[in-house]
Design a protein around this nucleic acid. Structure first.
Lengths: 191, 191
DNA sequence: TCACGATACGGAGCAGCGTTCCGCTTCGCA
DNA sequence: TGCGAAGCGGAACGCTGCTCCGTATCGTGA
């Protein structure tokens, strides 16, 4: 607006720092979970906290940036699975598997997504925006094939699956619980 | 040990304050959720925060005290339901209903139970200790009646149900998700 | 090559959290 | 009624996410 041409692109050090930050955050998330303090990430990256907040206005933006590729991959897998699976239900089931994989391998991510702390609302919203349409497409195909009851919304299913993935450990197998949920989803002739 | 008889019971003001605190906490939980700051509860009760911490060494102890009666009632309902229901599965289903009722009517309680914040671990442990045996008894009866698959632990089911109750609102009906989970629990002849 | 404005950085500081600590007050028995 | 024990209040501590601004660095036009 003011100059418009002095520095058309980000400064080299800023670009470098952004990548350093993403790497440091990813490492910190693995080491200490997604709730690791911002200060720790800054220290690991060798920068001040101010630098983090300039690149990523809020914690959630940083988490989103770190996991963006994986979430995108999960979203993209939906149509592919639908096209190649034996049945819509199999496609849905496999896609849910991918989603559960993602959530359970990221220490504390599922819990962070559902935490009612305001800082994570953006994160929550972004995940849903990105993945709900994909889930809805799969679900719709299942319903049309008569393989799944028709009174469940994609949003509801996603949130249910996400919730089930919270706090998985050796005594709580989230995948098995999700399996139960998906089994319960099947269209039932008996009632 | 030292005196042993000077003051056999708590002082009157302490007993009074404990009740005031329980009432204030219950009101604060309803008004602002279980994550309401300790300072707010203290202010509502008209006491200092120190007073809260003498009566309830940690937040979790206060939450436990507030909900103790309701949790006890839920635990007691297990055997009763089992004795009077048409089938073990019906008893289990109704008992889970009670549990879901409890969790969803307490704003944020389910989330607090699963939060990985250390302060809530005691709370989480207490809930499970109290309710898992009851659930196990119901589940066992269902399995023996051949109504439910036999490879699910009570702890796992409880945690799954608890997780599903997190963040219920007008767009996410936790009860319906739990219904799916319980439906998925049924013993299946097909595979 | 260099000067200078735009850009980016670091970290002290703020507000809010749970929890601790200790000087003061109140209770209730002897 | 005196006095030791019990209880109370709230300042203070260490932690959090996040903001703000003086300082340092970059990169371009002269």
């Amino acid at each position: 607006m003011t100059t418009g041409r002095t520095t058309p692109t980000k400064r080299a050090d800023a670009r470098r720092n952004e990548q350093v930050l993403l790497d440091a955050a990813a490492a910190a998330f693995v080491a200490s979970g997604v709730e690791v303090p911002v200060r720790h990430i800054a220290a690991r990256a060798g920068v001040g906290v101010g630098t983090i907040y300039r690149h990523f206005p809020t914690r959630a933006d940083l988490v989103i940036a770190v996991y963006r590729h994986q979430v995108d991959a999960c979203a993209d897998a939906g149509p592919t699975l639908l096209a190649h699976a034996d049945s819509p239900h199999q496609a849905l089931s496999r896609w849910i598997d991918l989603f559960v994989d993602f959530l359970t391998t990221k220490h504390g991510l599922a819990a962070a997504l559902q935490s009612d702390r305001a800082q994570f609302e953006t994160l929550h919203a972004w995940f849903l925006d990105r993945l709900v349409p994909v889930c809805a497409e799969l679900l719709q195909a299942c319903v049309q094939a008569g393989q799944v009851r028709d009174d469940i919304e994609a949003l509801e299913l996603m949130r249910g699956v996400g919730n089930l993935c919270i706090g998985a450990d050796e005594r709580y197998d989230a995948r098995r619980m999700v399996e139960l949920l998906i089994a319960g989803l099947r269209a039932t002739t008996q009632r």
